[in-house]
Simulated scan of single mutants.
Amino acid sequence: MLDISISGNAMQMAIVSLRPGQVVYSEAGKFLFSSADVVMETKLSQPSGGGQPGGGPAGGPAGGAGGLGGLLRGAMDAGKRMLAGESFAFCHFHSTGGDGLLALAGVLPGEMRVLELDGATTWFAEKDAFVAAEAGVNFDVAFSGLRQGFSGGEGFVLEKFTGRGSLIIAGAGNFIEINPADYGGRLKVDTGCVVAWDHNISYGIERVGALNRQGVMNAMFGGEGFNLATLSGNGQVILQSMTLGALAGALAKNAKRGDDTGPASLGGIFGGSRD
């Protein structure tokens, strides 16, 4: 397991003490800073479970000389990540000296969590949650079904994590960890609030009310759309307080105000003060 501390409040970051022999891989754009003895390499594949610098044994699929098989595997993995909207390649980090210092973070203001995988637990996450993991954690893409994905606007493409080691995820706003079994076994959640859940949880999509007057009113004017996510079972669920849709809407609204021109706006400094 990695030695990780979570630092910060409004926008947290993960500080990793990277010992010799340990390898961490992350999404592109999640790196903040490191000590001079930490080496970063960009590769198509995640490291092998061995956790050795360079992606495992010589000639392994994550190494630079993996042959045709390694190249094909890397291309397939990269293709699945691109379908999920993720970066084409992973950044690999290892220390060449003593304990190296490595800092990583998500891309939005919010919290981070370290999940420890024991080889028996599988975690699923929405496609923007992954920050980094150590080499023993396997990253994959899972598909939850076309109808469910198109209906929910979220969840068609999921990230799936198995194996052993530390997994770092991030979300927007604040986290709440909840077990549906403590509340009748089932939760209804805004699709944008779902961050991650373990394999004991079933994920689905349901319509908000019936197709009647009240259902249409809820969907059109309640601000939640026609569908909600459902999370059922006896396991761990991680939710976030800020939805990406709400954040994008707020930024777009205020950006439009700031771009107003003409005598009435008095420039960008007064652009948001006319309501």
Rank of each mutant, 00 (worst) to 15 (best):
I4W: 00
S7M: 15
Q12V: 06
M13Y: 12
I15P: 02
I15A: 05
I15S: 06
V16D: 00
S17V: 03
S17F: 03
R19I: 06
R19P: 00
G21E: 11
V23R: 00
Y25F: 08
Y25L: 04
S26V: 05
S26L: 09
G29F: 03
K30G: 05
S34A: 15
S35E: 08
V39Q: 14
P47W: 00
P47A: 04
G56N: 01
G67Y: 09
G67A: 12
G70M: 03
A75P: 11
D77Y: 03
D77H: 06
A84K: 10
S87P: 01
F88M: 13
F88S: 11
C91R: 15
C91P: 04
F93I: 04
G97Q: 09
G100L: 05
L101R: 08
G106L: 11
V107R: 12
L108T: 06
L108P: 00
E111I: 13
M112Y: 01
L117E: 00
G119E: 15
W123T: 07
A125M: 12
A132L: 08
V137M: 15
V141I: 15
A142M: 07
S144K: 15
S144Q: 14
G145L: 07
V157Q: 10
L158K: 04
E159A: 03
F161D: 01
T162M: 04
G163E: 11
A172C: 08
A172W: 00
G173S: 09
G173I: 05
F175D: 05
F175K: 07
I176E: 11
P180L: 03
P180W: 09
D182M: 13
Y183D: 11
R186H: 10
R186E: 07
R186A: 07
C193G: 09
C193E: 08
V195L: 12
D198W: 02
D198S: 10
H199R: 08
I201E: 06
I201K: 10
S202K: 13
G204F: 06
I205Y: 00
E206D: 12
E206R: 09
G209Y: 07
A210T: 11
N212H: 04
N212V: 10
R213G: 13
Q214F: 13
N218D: 12
G223I: 13
G225P: 05
L231F: 07
L231G: 04
G233V: 09
Q236I: 02
Q236D: 04
M242K: 14
G245V: 06
L251H: 04
L251P: 00
A252W: 12
K253L: 08
K253Y: 06
G258E: 04
G258W: 11
T261I: 11
A264E: 13
F270Q: 06
F270N: 09
G271Q: 02
S273C: 10
S273R: 15
R274M: 07
D275S: 13
